[in-house]
Design a protein around this nucleic acid. Structure first.
Lengths: 341, 341
DNA sequence: AATATACGCTAAAACGTTATAATTGCAAAA
DNA sequence: TTTTGCAATTATAACGTTTTAGCGTATATT
C-alpha cells in the first residue's frame, strides 16, 4: 500500500518501453501482439516488483466493461437468497468479477429502480429474481443488449435465459408421496403472487391430485405477501376447523412452511398426528422442530453457480448461444411429518 | 434505454454551451460557479429530456472516488450477517453508494485477498468483520488513508472506528438472570477464536459468576470453528455426564445455540427440565422449538445502519472526527428455557 | 537486387468526466 | 475616458487505460 498508485506508465518507464507494450502484457495479450518472451518476462517482473494494481475506473472507461455483475433478489436477508448470493459471489470471484446486490422486496417499482442504478453503474450483466408486476420492465431490459439471467422464476412469455427449479415436479413429488402415505385430503398453501414458480407449484399439486382421482379434494389457499403470519393463522384455522378438515398440507415455500408450523403449534395441532406436512427447502429452523420434517429440497447452491455460469457466458460470447436455460431437479426428503397414516 | 449513451457533451451541444457548464450543473455546483438560474434550468431540463445518466467510470477516474463501499463479513449466508448486509445495503443506497460484499469464512488469508480486490476496485471505504489472525492486515489497512469501520468485533490495541455490541453486558445479563432463576452451576459454550466479541462474552460471564461468589463453578468450553456439530456434541456430553453436571448453559453465539440445542435433543436432554439454556440472537429456528427460548437480543439492524453512517462520515469528512465508535446495547429476552428452578 | 513478409515495438487517439485557469462582456468606480 | 471588478462562460488538461494504425528493421521470396 504505497503512497502513490503505480500505473502502467511507471512500469513502462522502469522497463524503458511504451505503455502499449505493458498493457498488452498485463492483459495476457502478449502472444497475440507478438511481444517477445524476454520482454513479457521483464514487464511482468517489474509489475510485480512495483506491486502494480490496474485502475478499474480507467479500464472500465476505456473498454466499456466493468467486470461487475448486478444481482437483484427479493430479500438478501432471506436465507434462500442469502445462500444463493453467497454462491454467486464465490463463483463470480473465480472469474474475477465483482458482484453488487440489491433487494426488491417483491416490489416492481423498487426493482426497476435497482435495475436503473445498476445499469447506470455500468454492470456487464444482471441476474434478477423477477417479482410480481415486473414483466414489462424485464421485457424492456431484455431488448437491450445487456446480458440477463432470471433466477428462481421465469417470465414464460419472454425468451430469457434462466435458472429455475422444476417446480411442477417438486410439488408433484410431494403430492404423490402424501398419497402413497395414505392421505387423500391434501391441500396447498401458496402465495397469491402470480409468479412462474408459484404457479408451477400449484399445477404440480393439482394435476397430480387430478391424475390420482382426487380432483374434488384440490384446495389451494393463497396468502398475500404482506402480513403473512396473520393470514396463515387464518388459513390454518380454516383448514382444520372445516367440516372436512384437511389431512395434509403442502407449503409452497420455506417461509410459508415455517409460519405454517408456527401457526399449527399455536392452535395445538400436532404434526403429524393431527395433520401431515410437507415443507419447502431445508432450514435450520426445521432442525429444532419436535419431529423431522418431510420437505422438497432445492439444490440451492447450484442456483447461484449456474446463474453466474450462464451470465458470464452471455457476457463473454455476446453473440451466439444467447438464450440458455437450466432447470434444476428437486428432491423429496422424507421425514416424520408425513408418516404413514 | 437508448442505443447510444447520452454524455455531458450531448447535453452541451443541445443547449449550445460548454461541457464545463453542464458538469457544474449536474454536480449541483451551480451557485458556486455562479451559473445563471436560467442556464441551470435549461441544462437540467435537457438532461432530463435526454435521460442523461452520468458515466461512473469516467467520474471515478477523474475524481478518484467511486461511491462504492466494500463490506467483508464472515459469511454472507449466515443470517446474522445477511440481516446486517441488508441494512448496510439499504442505508448505503440512501446516500447513493453502492456496496460490494465478500465473505472471509473466518480465514485471514481470504480476508486479505478480499481487501486487496476491493481496494483495487477503488472502494471509497471498507466495513470489515475482522477474523482471527487478521490483526496485522487490518493494522496495515488502518495506516492507509482509506476510511475503515470494524463491525461486530474490534481489535482493541488498534484505534479504529467500530460498531460493536456491549458483549460483556450481554453475557452478564444472561448470567445474572440464570442466577436469579436459581441456577448455580452455569457453564458457557464459546469459540476458541480469540476475538474481541468472544473474549468479552466470556469475561461478562466469568466476572459475574465471580461477583456472585460462584467462581468455582466457572467453566468455559471452547469450540473450534471447524466441525462445530461434532465438537458441540462432545461438549454437551461432557457437561451433562460429568459427576457434577451443569444446571445451565449460556451459548455465546447463535450458531452455537442452535447446534447446542440440536445436540441436547439428540441425547434426550430436555430443556429446561434437565438443563436451562440461554441463547444468542433471535432466530427463526427458535420459533419452532418446543419451548420458548431465553436469549440475548442484539439490535442487528442497527449494526448495519450505524456502520454505514460512520463510514460515510469518514469518507466525506476525511479529516476531523476520524475515529468514532458505537457500542450497542443487548437486551435479555425471557423465555421458558431458563424458567425458575 | 528488388520486393514482400514477418516481427517487435510505438505513437496517439479515445473513453466521459472534473476542475483550474483563462476569457469575455458589461456595469460600476475612478 | 480609462480602469477595475464582477458575472457568466469556455478552453483545456488531466485521470489511466485500451487499441488501432503504423514504423523500422531483419529475414524470406522472387
Amino acid at each position: 500500500m504505497q503512497s502513490r498508485r503505480i500505473t502502467i506508465k511507471d512500469i513502462a518507464e522502469a522497463v524503458g518501453v511504451s505503455t502499449s507494450l505493458v498493457s498488452f502484457v498485463m492483459n495476457n495479450k502478449g502472444k497475440h501482439y507478438r511481444v517477445s518472451e524476454e520482454m513479457t518476462r521483464r514487464i511482468q517482473e517489474t509489475a510485480r516488483a512495483l506491486n502494480y494494481q490496474p485502475n478499474n475506473a480507467a479500464r472500465s472507461l476505456r473498454s466499456g466493461r466493468s467486470r461487475t455483475i448486478g444481482v437483484i433478489v427479493s430479500d438478501i436477508s432471506n436465507p434462500f437468497f442469502a445462500d444463493i448470493a453467497r454462491r454467486i459471489e464465490d463463483n463470480a470471484y473465480k472469474y474475477n468479477y465483482t458482484v453488487i446486490f440489491g433487494s426488491s422486496d417483491e416490489n416492481a417499482a423498487k426493482l426497476e429502480n435497482l435495475i436503473n442504478v445498476m445499469v447506470n453503474k455500468g454492470v456487464d450483466g444482471l441476474i434478477i429474481v423477477p417479482c410480481h408486476g415486473s414483466e414489462e420492465v424485464i421485457r424492456q431490459l431484455a431488448e437491450t443488449s445487456l446480458p440477463l439471467v432470471l433466477l428462481d422464476r421465469t417470465i414464460p412469455e419472454l425468451e430469457i435465459s434462466h435458472v429455475v427449479l422444476n417446480n411442477r415436479k417438486a410439488t408433484a413429488l410431494a403430492t404423490e408421496h402424501l398419497i402413497e402415505q395414505g392421505y387423500r385430503r391434501i391441500e396447498m398453501v401458496s402465495y397469491d403472487m402470480r409468479l412462474s414458480n408459484t404457479l408451477e407449484r400449484e399445477t404440480g399439486y393439482s394435476s397430480t391430485m387430478e391424475q390420482q382421482g382426487l380432483k374434488s379434494f384440490i384446495h389451494t389457499h393463497r396468502i398475500k405477501f404482506q402480513h403473512i403470519p396473520e393470514q396463515i393463522q387464518k388459513v390454518v384455522q380454516e383448514i382444520t376447523q372445516s367440516s372436512h378438515p384437511a389431512e395434509a398440507i403442502i407449503f409452497a415455500t420455506n417461509t410459508l412452511a415455517i409460519e405454517g408450523l408456527k401457526a399449527l403449534a399455536k392452535f395445538n395441532i400436532t404434526v403429524p398426528d393431527n395433520i401431515a406436512v410437507v415443507g419447502f427447502d431445508g432450514s435450520e429452523a426445521f432442525e429444532l422442530y419436535h419431529t423431522t420434517l418431510t420437505y422438497i429440497k432445492q439444490p440451492i447452491e447450484q442456483f447461484g453457480y449456474e446463474a453466474v455460469e450462464l451470465l458470464i457466458k452471455g457476457i463473454e460470447n455476446q453473440d451466439k448461444s444467447r438464450i440458455a436455460s437450466i432447470t434444476l431437479s428437486p428432491e423429496l426428503i422424507r421425514g416424520n411429518s408425513s408418516r404413514k397414516k
